[in-house]
Design a protein around this nucleic acid. Structure first.
Length: 616
RNA sequence: GGGGGCGUAGCGAAGCUGGUUAUCGCGCCGGCCUGUCAAGCCGGAGAUCGCGGGUUCAAUCCCCGUCGCUCCCGCCA
């Protein structure tokens, strides 16, 4: 049987095509058989078109139509006909017309489906991933991959328009065991040696700057062997960008233009010309996160000033223990912030039940808070605001100071976290803030609230190894005013670092890089890299910097997360065609798998199974 | 490495302080039906209640173990 080849698609026909003879190819989306007349909703990537098998159709045509089942792949030839006014389907793009079948071919049949193809599948993720080819037929997945395609195109359109070159960098690279765990590829030619898959094209893009490609970008696949999360899987795509002869604000402005273009072109959303800027310290103090959701305000406040006048021993202990620790660390030359007591006011939520508060406390405890203290603001005997319930008895002496200091009104709920580590208090209360934002419906899912987080600390103290680590990576430029005190007070140094945050997710991360070999050497020394280490791991980069390296910096927005948020999703699996599951397995093709002994031999590898390994 | 949740028919769920034949919706199969669009109506098939063990007269339900999935903490320069 000769293939009836499509002359148009299932999304293309409209009233202007009435009378035309067309051929459609696609899948049986729905079928409604009325005995005499029957309808087939035919679907392809472009849409759905109603095909009619009329009552006066030939017996042979009716016989083929009767055989049709869900997801049969078919071809039909027929004439486009306007639907009678009362039969128009306003919910369907092609709802004004239908195609009267003249010929019908079954191209392939379809087994009983493991789940139905709908707009969004209600099957478990496990099942969706095992039959990903079917899941991808759903309207939702088709739309999301279309959005991803549009975003990728808009990125290239904009970047190339601004004079950037897309340059591919290797995916077999040298392993430099800093940061995340590498995925390794054994070398056949060199026994005992390995390539690594890149965690990002970081070193290559910097070298491209040395090479004079002053504006580079790449939609780069990156690999990190770390445990998955909703917004994270082993392989992901980064919009990798690097520029020469720029300062921080040049990179931020370029990124704002890029995002403006992408949102305008793909969603028709107009973003602000410039995004809010927040220092890392402010973000942590006000929102309890370095990636705050700014779709709602509800700022956290410092409760420290009210502790001394109270009789709440737990709060006093948190501060005094924090201060003692701060002094201990200071003696070692390590700057830490001490303890912290932070408060969050939930306006009008004094009616929160014990249970609801306990749920908030549970959210705080996930992030190591020891508890969540609370007080309700009620009207006192004189009609003035008073504190009631929870920890209020400890504030009998200074309740008025608390009320005016926090600016609370009758009916408000005050939530407080205290910890000897200020960061813990901030982050735990930040988790409470996030939960409240969701619970109280303060979060508008249609809004896109972008913000820059700047002035990140350059170094973090590693308690286990009693040494300093870089908070970002080795090549980040410390801000100029800290250059004299890098060695004497690493804990206070801010880096020329920036993150772009969208609705509570880290969307991009970048920095101005060090281009001065002498400064780079100082950083290596602070994190305990001797010359030989630095030489061995990054020698090629530092070597290249001896030959006239330009000042440069860049940024790397995550494409998967961007598309995820634009599509209103909370898992990047919803915008990746073939994702891994939470254990880094692909249920469809059963990857990773064992390989033949012959392959292992060629690669000079022997497998040593861990204790208790059961095989597979 | 740790914590929460889940596993019952092809899919999604209900049932469980232990007690006849394990329930519902969708899908599937058959029949009826000339305007539906999540078509409708009638009938039917389909379940080692994840797996193994234990307690009990009796286990989908309780206990122990195990496997798998999912979310989170840690981890993610």
């Amino acid at each position: 049987m000769k293939l009836l080849k499509r002359s148009t698609t299932c999304g293309a026909l409209s009233a202007t095509d009435v009378g035309k003879t067309v051929v459609l190819n696609g899948w049986v989306h729905r079928k409604r058989d009325h005995g005499g007349i029957s309808f087939i909703n035919l679907r392809d990537r472009y849409g759905v078109t109603q095909v009619v098998v009329d009552a006066d159709a030939s017996d042979s045509l009716k016989a083929v139509a009767a055989e049709l089942r869900h997801e049969f792949c078919i071809a039909i030839e027929g004439v486009v006909r306007a639907r009678p006014d009362t039969m128009v389907n306003k919910d369907m793009a092609t709802g004004t017309i239908e195609v009267v079948a003249g010929q019908l071919q079954i191209l392939t049949r379809c087994d009983v489906l493991p789940f139905q193809i709908d707009e969004e599948s209600d099957a478990k993720e496990e099942t969706r991933l095992k039959y990903r080819y079917l899941d991808l037929r759903s309207g939702g997945m088709q739309k999301r991959l279309a959005l991803r395609n549009a975003v990728a195109f808009a990125v290239r359109e904009h970047m190339i328009g601004e004079g950037f070159f897309e340059i591919e960098t290797p995916t077999f690279i040298k392993s430099t065991p800093e940061g995340a765990r590498d995925y390794l590829v054994p070398s056949r030619l060199y026994p005992g040696k390995f390539y690594a898959l890149p965690q990002s094209p970081q070193l290559y893009k910097q070298i491209l700057m040395v090479s004079g490609f002053d504006k580079y970008f790449q939609l780069a696949r990156c690999y990190r062997d770390e445990d998955a999360r909703g917004d994270r899987q082993p392989e992901f795509t980064q919009i990798d960008i690097e520029m020469s002869f720029v300062e921080r604000d040049d990179v931020l402005a370029m990124t704002e233009r890029l995002f403006g273009h992408v949102f305008r072109k793909t969603l028709g959303v107009e973003l602000p010309k410039t995004f809010t800027r927040l220092s890392y310290d402010e973000a942590l103090e006000r929102y309890g996160s370095d990636k705050p959701d700014l779709r709602f305000e509800m700022k956290m406040q410092d409760f420290g000033p009210f502790v001394a006048g109270s009789t709440f021993q737990a709060f006093k202990d948190a501060l005094s223990e924090g201060e003692a620790e701060r002094q201990r660390q200071a003696a070692k030359g390590v700057t830490v912030s001490g303890g912290g007591v932070k408060a969050l006011v939930a306006p009008g939520k004094a009616d929160y039940s014990r249970k609801q508060i306990e749920e908030l406390e549970a959210a705080a405890k996930i992030y190591r808070a020891k508890g969540l203290a609370w007080m309700k603001v009620s009207a006192g005997v004189d009609g003035q605001p008073a504190l009631e319930g929870g920890a209020s008895k400890f504030f009998a002496d200074n309740f008025a100071a608390v009320i005016s200091g926090l600016g609370v009104k009758v009916g408000d709920l005050i939530l407080v976290v205290a910890d000897s580590t200020r960061r813990v208090a901030n982050i735990a209360l930040g988790a409470v803030r996030s939960k409240l934002g969701k619970d109280l419906g303060l979060v508008d899912p249609k809004r896109f609230e972008l913000a820059w987080i700047v002035d990140f600390p350059m170094f973090e103290y590693n308690e286990d190894e009693q040494k300093w680590d870089t908070a970002h990576h080795m090549f980040t430029m410390p801000q100029a005013q800290f250059h004299p005190t890098l060695e004497s007070d690493p804990g206070s140094v801010k880096g020329d670092l920036y993150d772009l945050v969208l609705n509570g997710f880290e969307l991009a991360s970048g920095s101005i890089r060090i281009h001065d070999p002498a400064l780079q050497k100082r950083i290596f020394q602070i994190v305990g890299f001797n010359e030989a280490d630095g030489e061995k791991k990054f020698g090629f980069l530092t070597e290249s910097f001896k030959y006239g390296a330009p000042p440069h910096g860049g940024i790397a927005p995550g494409l998967d997360r961007l598309v995820m948020l634009m599509a209103g999703q909370t898992s990047i699996k919803e915008v990746i065609a073939f994702p891994k599951n939470s254990f880094a397995v692909s249920p469809m093709d059963d990857c990773p798998n064992e390989v033949d002994q012959k392959q292992l031999d060629e690669l000079h590898l022997t497998i040593r199974y861990p204790e208790g390994h059961q095989g597979s």
